[in-house]
Amino acid sequence: MIQNSKYAIEVNNLTKHYKGLSAVDNISFAVERGEVFALLGPNGAGKTTTVEILNTIRKPTSGKVMLLGMDVTQKKYDIIPRIGVLPQGFSSFDRITVKETLQYYSRLFCRKKPDIQGLMKLVNLKDKAAVQYKNLSGGLKQRLGIAVALVNDPEIVFLDEPTTGLDPLARRAMWEVLLDLKKNGKTLFLTTHYMEEAELLADTVSIVKKGKIFAMGSPGELIESNADYLVVMLKSVDETVFDIVEKMGFAPEYDSHGHITVRLAHTDDVRRILNAVRESGASFTGLDVRKPNLEEVFLKLTDDTFLKSVAGIEEAQ
């Protein structure tokens, strides 16, 4: 028995074709027990397809997926009781209340003494126990979905876009719940569009696009290895500055606050720009030089046009 392998999830050369389209294209990765793994990628990247293959809902075209040491294509009914799933766009029975929904799913897993109260407390739904599903707000529905994913006390929890469509406050509340799960030693596999979410929650982030993994590592590593440029921000400038920077061959942009942002490949360039501005006699009140964050790394890796805005950077990979 290799059921107690070190890895909760092992994916080797996984490929999934839909009539001529490679939704997932030969990807491999492994997730350790207790690790939080985030699949980050734009729409249509193949995140849901990957998760659903891992959840035993879809069959891979080729490749091997092991969950808790068991092959997903052969051990469906052994795997299912040990995983919890929040599908993308979770939905439930309209006229069934929060408490009844949790009771129902507990019964599906044949739980003898389900801790319904504990689950409702965990996701902060205790005062909504008697509210029917159709009368819950989007954020509450999503939280119920997480509670449902936990009814069988799973070892691995899969969350496909757990915070999509939530307001910033609800999103933070959801993060709290997920951090709690992490503390309790659950292995979490989540997909998301939000960098700050991955940065905050994940031990490992895997950036996917068009079915391929572009980069993988801890958020820090990813930034480190892809941050081959600097972000410079000039505050409260007069308009001539933009033209000066542009004429020097860089690609400045105005951000939402009216500041000028420009991405530079070399530290030298910062000095050159400052000199040029000073010589022209234009003024500015603030200057901020920083490394890119995960969001920019994500854009760099997934958006082909993004690279062009960083002067002096050769096409990576």
């Binding site: 599908p87 979770f90 939905s91």
Partner: peptide, 11 residues
């Protein structure tokens, strides 16, 4: 609504 999809991740 996708409820069936959720159900297919249960026993």
């Amino acid at each position: 609504k996708g409820v069936i999809r959720k159900l297919s991740t249960t026993p």
